[in-house]
């Protein structure tokens, strides 16, 4: 049959469903093992964060599309959590192989890492369903729930979100070409605009870098 925009959207959703229907709502044994290997076990914080962001997401979603659609938001978030666990496990396996270490205590106790990873997973789900979520919400121009909406919902810095995108794409081999393009567009939006907002942690890093440079004798002035 000929490919139509509707058929393409349905295929993408179906593809995501196939992956996530068999995925877990909770950490797998493999993930639990990574958590247990940590100097400080991160599992309680991870579960609390998911619970807290579930409430925040549900509230913001309902505000955007109407209280009648709140259950759609609950389902989207649930799929996002499944993808988050799935990608986290793949990332840790990849990092274990690359670094030859088993203790990821620092990474797994880093709140920005988890929030960014969960935001990226939820963004993939939201972008997969695209505008279908707005059908019961009325005005579409006021209810665009794709990126960067998730940054506002999770109170997340764009610069931190940026850090997980490439690794996410690298380890999640089932992402469609359209989804990779979407994440690439998110990257470009961050690089060109969002990372340069005045409260961006990017400026702290620039300052740190400049301070380090200042400590080392520089024979030549830094060029513009």
């Amino acid at each position: 049959p000929p490919q139509t925009p509707v058929r393409a959207a349905m295929n993408t959703i179906q593809q995501l469903m196939v992956i996530l229907n068999s995925a877990n709502d909770s950490p797998s044994n493999s993930l639990i093992s990574y958590f247990n290997n940590c100097t400080v076990n991160p599992v309680e914080n991870i579960l609390q964060r998911i619970e807290h962001l579930s409430y925040v997401f549900r509230t913001r979603f309902a505000e955007a599309v109407g209280q009648a659609c709140v259950e759609i938001g609950v389902q989207r978030y649930k799929l996002g959590v499944r993808l988050y666990y799935r990608v986290m496990e793949s990332m840790l396996k990849s990092e274990e192989k690359r670094l030859s270490v088993h203790n990821f205590s620092k990474l797994l106790n880093n709140s920005a890492f988890h929030t960014s990873l969960l935001a990226c997973a939820v963004e993939v789900v939201m972008a997969t369903y695209g505008r279908s979520a707005f059908e019961c919400g009325g005005s579409s121009s006021e209810t665009d729930l794709t990126f960067p909406w998730i940054l506002y919902v999770f109170d997340l810095k764009a610069f931190d979100f940026y850090k997980v995108i490439e690794s996410f794409i690298k380890v999640e081999s089932s992402l469609s070409k359209a989804m990779i393009k979407h994440l690439e567009r998110c990257e470009h939006q961050i690089m060109e605009c969002l990372a340069w907002k005045s409260d961006s942690p990017f400026f702290d890093l620039l300052k740190q870098s400049k301070d380090r440079e200042g400590q080392i004798e520089q024979p030549e002035p830094t060029s513009t």
Binding site: F104, L107, K163, S167, I169
Partner: peptide, 21 residues
Amino acid sequence: SQGYHFGLEEDEGVSELFDCD
């Protein structure tokens, strides 16, 4: 994959990006 330009070097990953190396 799929035309995406990977920018991270072989010795870089999320651990380094989140300052956890």
